[in-house]
Design a protein around this nucleic acid. Structure first.
Length: 198
DNA sequence: TCATTAAAGTTAT
DNA sequence: ATAACTTTAATGA
């Protein structure tokens, strides 16, 4: 969790609920709030030239949404959409900055978070250009698995649909599916009733 | 080699 | 029931 919920609530953060596929903010909106997920999954996406969805990031419980834009004077370059039922805390930008000034620790945590976002982007950028599908999917899965305690083979059930994996790596679903099958044959992953174990 | 299209089966809501 | 996801196959860049 980025900022303790009690702190957010004590300075007036408002709890909002979202249904699956409900929009939290849109590309082009002006960032006026700090958002933090209490419960639920959120995706940040946009759409390329003609229609294909590109998922930029998937976020879950405790993470903040689009926080990097609060530090700049630019509209959001992405949409934020709830994937599940979400409970989200929302705090006006000005109060968010007051918090940063008041608590050095929150400031530090925010730096850590931004660094982590940047790291993910660096890894994925390298991934998007060049590389074969197997390598792309492997980089994604390695990243996801890196947060797990258990590191033994096939211990990690990928919490994404093939659709989402494709949208994160710039592949089409069919290629993602074929590649995952290939990886199964090569003992890189196991598949148990459609779930990918890595 | 991978994307695209189409068609059909499966799962989730 | 309907939408979303998964899978296979054919075709084209």
């Amino acid at each position: 969790m980025v900022i303790k919920e009690e702190i957010l609530q004590s300075v007036g953060a408002v709890t909002r609920r979202y249904r699956p596929s409900e929009i939290i903010f849109n590309e082009g909106d002006v960032p006026n709030y700090y958002y933090q997920i209490v419960i639920g999954d959120v995706k940040l996406n946009n759409y390329n030239d003609e229609g294909k969805e590109i998922i930029q990031t998937l976020l879950e419980d405790g993470q903040s949404i689009g926080e990097s834009l609060l530090f700049m004077d630019k509209p959001y370059p992405i949409n934020a959409i709830a994937l599940t039922n979400c409970t989200i805390l929302r705090l006006p930008k000005t109060v968010f900055f007051d918090l940063l000034k008041l608590y050095p620790e929150i400031c530090l945590d925010m730096n850590k978070l931004l660094s982590q976002r940047l790291y993910f982007k660096l890894i994925m950028a390298q991934n998007l250009s060049s590389q074969n599908p197997t390598a792309k999917l492997k980089v994604l899965m390695d990243y996801l698995k890196s947060f797990q305690k258990e590191q033994s083979p096939y211990s990690f059930r990928i919490p994404l649909t093939r659709q989402q994996m494709a949208s994160l790596t710039g592949l089409c679903v069919e290629t993602a599916i074929r590649t995952i099958k290939l990886m199964e044959r090569n003992k890189i992953v196991k598949i148990e009733n459609r779930k990918i174990l890595y």
